[in-house]
Nucleic acid binder design. Structure first.
Lengths: 231, 231
DNA sequence: CAGATACGCTACGACCAGTAGCGAAAGAGC
DNA sequence: GCTCTTTCGCTACTGGTCGTAGCGTATCTG
């Protein structure tokens, strides 16, 4: 806090507050209107791709900024003009993968959850996510700014999926329609942590595979009494 | 693999294959019978304590071997004579905390689970575990030896707790006694990943607290139909 | 006492994150 | 076309870390 009073006044595209990785020209997004030479959007893409590639090959610990720059055909200083640190670069590189997640309405809550779990597990078996995800979470535990970025770009989009699934189920009449919204929101939180945490733990900590059969049993556990478990 | 054929023949206490951190003299453990000057058990303890302390203060990224050595009043080289790397040292430092977990029989499966979840959550709010656990899991994803050590010293003891809880419940007649042991083992695996993963995710990723109320709701979700969730 | 081993110390090699300063390139606005 | 602004690539550098080597000394066993 208490920013030193310096107001550099010479940061056209602020070094940390990143411009969106492009693709925004036709989006109606405000596109910042810089005056000088614009940043190369191609470089952005090349850097993110190179990051994922290096991550998959070398893991979090093996990835170096110099290596990424070389793979992307770009100077190392260019990386630091766009991302404030290695961690934040990796967040962005990984986040795009999680954008592919979606919650399609398959007619029942159980089917919806099974589909999203399967897709999520698939993402977590990619070598790049496997190498990066836990390292990012760990890094974020000591860096509030990084934590915020992780939440925004990786965690929140997943949570929205659970919320969406819940809304679909409610629309289908699978759930009590008179539920107190506050309570419902809390439940979404519990279920989100349960789904994401369990799949991550099984794949990344226990190191056991997530098969269709496992998904079915886990989802059943989530939605009702585990057959034969009690009584 | 394919170890270079060198057979140093001068490793009395092998540098990686650690001697148990002591406390074993009266345990009937075989106590290795070295011939020269024995390792200082006090140093072992001092190092592990210093590691936890540094972890709590500086986090995983901030912890350095030099600093730990200084806190422990020991030369840095001594650390490396006992642990092959920073990661493995931290595993041992953290593992001792998880030894405190236990599954006391409180008369019902729900009560047992609630107790163990509460205790687990308590451990995960310690700054030292908070700083180390995810970092270790991340590190382990690229290092099989470390992964093995983590499983042995941290994950497996937790899993045993779930198994124990299940046995207690079965003894109390809360569960089907004729259950196929193979299926039962798989179920223990699912439930273990669910409990550990969910609590970790909530505390370390979502960053939300684990209250008594949350524990009750989560356990209820685990054991039966979430009240009012479906239908 | 002799042999074996652990210990502390100092120094070192290799590597990496992140920064500094420059000249050159590439757009924007006129 | 010209100027102004900003980015880009390059090279070099700082500061810090892991992990190792070599030595003399301390401590234990037989």
């Amino acid at each position: 806090m208490a920013p030193t009073t310096r107001q550099p006044a010479e940061q056209p595209h602020p070094p940390d507050d990143r411009t969106p990785p492009d693709g925004a020209v036709a989006d109606g997004a405000v596109a910042v209107r810089g005056k000088g030479r614009p940043r190369s959007a191609a470089a952005d893409q090349a850097i993110l791709d190179a990051t994922r590639e290096a991550l998959a090959e070398l893991g979090w610990g093996g990835l170096t900024m110099g290596d990424v720059a070389q793979r992307a055909g770009v100077a190392k200083t260019t990386l630091y003009r766009r991302w404030p640190s290695k961690s934040e670069l990796v967040v962005d590189a990984i986040a795009s993968l999680f954008d592919q997640l979606e919650c399609t309405d398959r007619g029942s809550l159980q089917a919806d959850i099974e589909a999203v779990v399967a897709r999520f597990a698939e993402l977590l078996t990619l070598p790049e996510t496997q190498a990066a995800l836990l390292a990012l979470f760990a890094e974020g535990s000591r860096d509030p700014q990084l934590r915020r970025r992780i939440r925004e770009r990786i965690v929140q989009p997943q949570k929205v999926l659970v919320e969406l699934g819940r809304a679909n189920a409610q629309a289908r009449g699978e759930m009590d329609p008179d539920r107190d919204p506050a309570v419902a929101a809390e439940e979404v939180g519990i279920i989100f942590d349960t789904i994401a945490g369990t799949v991550e733990h099984r794949l990344l900590v226990s190191g056991e595979p997530v098969t269709a059969d496992w998904i079915r049993r886990f989802t059943t556990l989530l939605l009702g009494p585990f057959p034969g478990l009690l009584r």
